[in-house]
Amino acid sequence: MKLVVFGLTISSSWGNGHATTYRALLRAFAERGHEIVFYEWDAPWYRGNRDLPHPGFARLKLYAEWDDVAASAVAEAREADAVIVGSYVKDGPRVIDALAGAGVDPLFFYDIDTPVTVAALRRGGTEYLRPDQVPLFTRYLSFTGGPFLQDVIERELGAREARPLYCSVDVDRYRPTEIDPYLVCDLAYMGTYAPDRQPLIDRFLVEPARRMPDRKFYVAGPQYPDDLEWPENVLHNPHLPPALHPQFYSSARWQLNATRADMVAAGWSPSVRLFEAAACGAAMISDRWPGIDHFFTPGSEILLPETTEEVIHIIRDTHEDDRRAIGLAARARIVAEHTAAHRAEELEALVGTVVASA
Results as ranks from 00 to 15, higher is better:
residue 16 N to M: 02
residue 67 D to N: 08
residue 100 A to K: 07
residue 15 G to T: 02
residue 128 Y to M: 01
residue 102 A to R: 06
residue 44 P to K: 08
residue 32 R to S: 12
residue 38 F to M: 14
residue 93 P to W: 01
residue 99 L to F: 09
residue 72 S to T: 11
residue 135 P to S: 06
residue 96 I to S: 04
residue 130 R to C: 05
residue 85 V to C: 11
residue 49 N to P: 07
residue 119 A to K: 00
residue 56 G to E: 15
residue 106 P to K: 03
residue 28 A to W: 14
residue 102 A to Y: 08
residue 32 R to E: 14
residue 47 R to N: 10
residue 104 V to Q: 07
residue 58 A to D: 09
residue 20 T to Q: 12
residue 133 Q to S: 04
residue 77 A to P: 04
residue 88 Y to P: 00
residue 48 G to C: 14
residue 40 E to K: 09
residue 134 V to T: 05
residue 88 Y to K: 00
residue 139 R to P: 01
residue 63 Y to V: 07
residue 47 R to T: 12
residue 82 A to L: 15
residue 115 P to T: 00
residue 99 L to V: 05
residue 96 I to W: 07
residue 129 L to M: 07
residue 44 P to T: 12
residue 132 D to Y: 06
residue 43 A to H: 11
residue 81 D to A: 13
residue 9 T to M: 00
residue 77 A to W: 03
residue 62 L to M: 11
residue 131 P to F: 01
residue 56 G to D: 14
residue 86 G to R: 04
residue 133 Q to K: 03
residue 99 L to Y: 05
residue 118 V to F: 01
residue 55 P to C: 13
residue 8 L to R: 04
residue 52 L to C: 15
residue 87 S to W: 03
residue 82 A to G: 15
residue 125 G to T: 08
residue 105 D to K: 13
residue 55 P to G: 11
residue 121 L to P: 01
residue 60 L to R: 12
residue 37 V to G: 08
residue 41 W to V: 02
residue 24 A to V: 09
residue 81 D to F: 04
residue 101 G to L: 07
residue 138 T to M: 03
residue 54 H to V: 11
residue 104 V to E: 11
residue 7 G to M: 11
residue 94 R to V: 03
residue 24 A to C: 10
residue 119 A to C: 02
residue 131 P to M: 02
residue 52 L to G: 14
residue 128 Y to C: 01
residue 90 K to S: 05
residue 60 L to N: 12
residue 54 H to W: 14
residue 60 L to M: 13
residue 132 D to M: 05
residue 77 A to D: 03
residue 57 F to C: 14
residue 106 P to E: 10
residue 66 W to N: 05
residue 123 R to D: 03
residue 30 A to C: 13
residue 120 A to F: 01
residue 126 T to Y: 00
residue 87 S to K: 02
residue 46 Y to M: 11
residue 79 E to F: 04
residue 134 V to A: 06
residue 121 L to Q: 04
residue 17 G to D: 05
residue 124 G to N: 07
residue 21 T to F: 07
residue 71 A to Y: 10
residue 48 G to L: 15
residue 100 A to W: 07
residue 73 A to D: 08
residue 55 P to D: 14
residue 115 P to S: 03
residue 92 G to R: 00
residue 34 H to M: 06
residue 48 G to V: 15
residue 30 A to W: 09
residue 110 Y to Q: 04
residue 15 G to K: 04
residue 96 I to G: 05
residue 114 T to E: 05
residue 71 A to K: 12
residue 29 F to E: 05
residue 112 I to N: 06
residue 54 H to P: 06
residue 132 D to N: 10
residue 45 W to D: 13
residue 65 E to S: 08
residue 116 V to P: 01
residue 132 D to L: 03
residue 10 I to C: 08
residue 41 W to R: 04
residue 98 A to K: 04
residue 79 E to Y: 02
residue 89 V to S: 01
residue 92 G to N: 02
residue 25 L to S: 15
residue 41 W to H: 08
residue 40 E to A: 11
